[in-house]
């Protein structure tokens, strides 16, 4: 195993915002679905978490979102172990750590105007401000993801899959998070739109210094977006490192098998 500890990443550069530190997890008394997983996110850097069904991607994501507690090890946020009972620090945590999900058709409320959806984290996390202030913020957010301001007045069904994912990203950006955890954010999109949404993520992470964890089964997407990659198989990170070097010289047989399985153009 080559898992870099959060400490190592810290020594390299920016302070770690969110980390899994030797995390293991099992549901109830079942078998472990994550074993001794360490992963660190720093501002402005993208990490790809790659694995197939049942590898433990979603379980790890849930723990990193504070939606569950590890069986052993800890989730660390800004240097402290995350305490899910501490309401005040959890509020700060929820502002700082935002999710984007795979399916923009189900992650947006069809009966809510797009503007209200985007402003929702501002309300629920108590960042609100006045109505005009909020409207201005929504306009700014929609523009930052390449949507016109009048999109705010419309409902999700007026938008294509790619546009809906942009809306979901605008909503994630609303509380000015330090980290975005994206679960297969482009898998449901058509090929031609996929690249555009990837470029959007890239630009946002760079401009706003957001740390991005991209969970995906798709090596191509991770190669496009992430400087670092972690390969998860059967709950264990079997390989972790710079994306370039892992993809050109994979050390673990599973990474090689994943790479060999990607359908290529002749």
């Amino acid at each position: 195993m080559t898992a870099a500890t959060p400490g190592e990443a810290q020594a390299n550069a920016a302070p770690v915002v969110l980390a899994a530190d030797r995390v293991s997890f099992s549901y109830g008394r079942g078998a472990e679905v994550l074993h001794d997983v360490s992963l660190a996110l720093v501002p402005g850097e993208s990490v790809g978490l790659v694995g197939e069904s049942g590898a433990g991607k979603t379980s790890l994501l849930r723990l990193l979102l504070g939606l569950g507690a590890p069986t052993s090890g800890e989730i660390r946020f800004e240097g402290h172990a995350l305490d899910r009972r501490d309401t005040r620090s959890m509020l700060a945590f929820r502002r700082a750590v935002q999710p984007v999900y795979q399916d923009p058709f189900s992650s947006l409320d069809p009966r809510m105007r797009v503007g209200d959806s985007v402003a929702e984290p501002l309300r629920s996390l108590g960042i609100a401000g006045g109505r005009t202030e909020r409207a201005a913020r929504v306009t700014e957010l929609l523009e930052s993801v390449g949507l016109p301001a009048d999109a705010a007045e419309r409902y999700p069904d007026a938008f294509s899959g790619g546009q809906r994912q942009r809306i979901a990203i605008a909503r994630a950006l609303a509380p000015e998070p330090r980290v975005i955890l994206a679960d297969e954010p482009v898998s449901a999109l058509d090929t031609s739109v996929r690249m555009q949404v990837i470029e959007l993520f890239q630009r946002l992470a760079r401009e706003r210094g957001i740390g991005l964890l991209l969970v995906s089964h798709d090596l191509t997407i991770v190669a496009a977006l992430c400087r670092r990659i972690a390969v998860l198989e059967g709950g264990i990170i079997v390989e972790q490192g710079e994306t370039r070097s892992v993809l050109t010289e994979p050390r673990h047989p599973y990474t090689r098998r994943l790479l060999d399985s990607v359908p290529r153009l002749p």
């Binding site: 996929r194 191509t220 190669a223």
Partner: peptide, 8 residues
């Protein structure tokens, strides 16, 4: 092609 070129 752009996606394919991202892999070695």
């Amino acid at each position: 092609r752009a996606l394919d070129d991202l892999l070695p």
